[in-house]
Computed example of a mutant assay.
Amino acid sequence: MTDYRCDVAVLRLSGELDSDTATSLHDLLADLLERTVPRIVVDMTDLKFCDSVRLSAFVTAKQVISARGGWLSFAGPNRFLAELLETIGLSRYFAIFPEVDDAIAAAQI
Rank of each mutant, 00 (worst) to 15 (best):
V53Y: 11
P98V: 09
S66D: 07
D3H: 15
E99N: 12
A22W: 00
F74C: 07
A95G: 11
Q108G: 05
L55T: 01
D43C: 02
R12D: 09
T23D: 13
Y4F: 15
G70H: 01
F49L: 04
A82L: 12
S66E: 11
Q108I: 10
A22Q: 12
L32H: 02
L84F: 13
R39P: 00
L81V: 13
C6F: 11
D101Q: 14
V8N: 11
R92A: 14
I96A: 08
S73W: 00
S19G: 03
E86D: 14
A95M: 13
E99T: 13
D18M: 09
L28F: 04
A95E: 13
T23V: 12
S14V: 00
V8Y: 06
L81C: 03
R92N: 10
R54A: 09
D18I: 02
G89I: 01
D18K: 01
L32E: 12
C50T: 08
L72T: 02
L13T: 06
R54Q: 15
L55A: 03
L25N: 00
W71K: 09
I40E: 01
W71F: 15
M44W: 08
I104R: 10
F97C: 09
D20I: 01
D31T: 15
S52D: 10
V42S: 00
Y93Q: 02
I40Y: 04
S56C: 08
Q63C: 01
Q63T: 07
Q63L: 07
R12Q: 05
T23W: 05
D27A: 14
Q108V: 04
D43H: 12
A22L: 02
T2L: 12
V8L: 06
E99Q: 14
V41F: 07
D27N: 05
P38V: 11
R54F: 01
A106Q: 04
V42C: 06
G70L: 00
T60L: 13
M44S: 11
F49N: 08
C6N: 14
V10N: 00
L17F: 04
F74G: 08
L85D: 03
E16D: 15
C50D: 05
K62V: 00
L47G: 03
S66Q: 14
R92T: 08
G89Y: 12
A95D: 14
A57M: 12
L81M: 15
V100I: 06
P38S: 08
K62H: 15
R12N: 10
D51W: 08
R12V: 06
F97T: 04
R92F: 02
S19Y: 11
S91R: 05
R68V: 12
A95K: 15
V41D: 04
V59Y: 04
A9K: 04
H26M: 01
T21M: 09
E16A: 11
A106K: 08
P77I: 01
G76W: 02
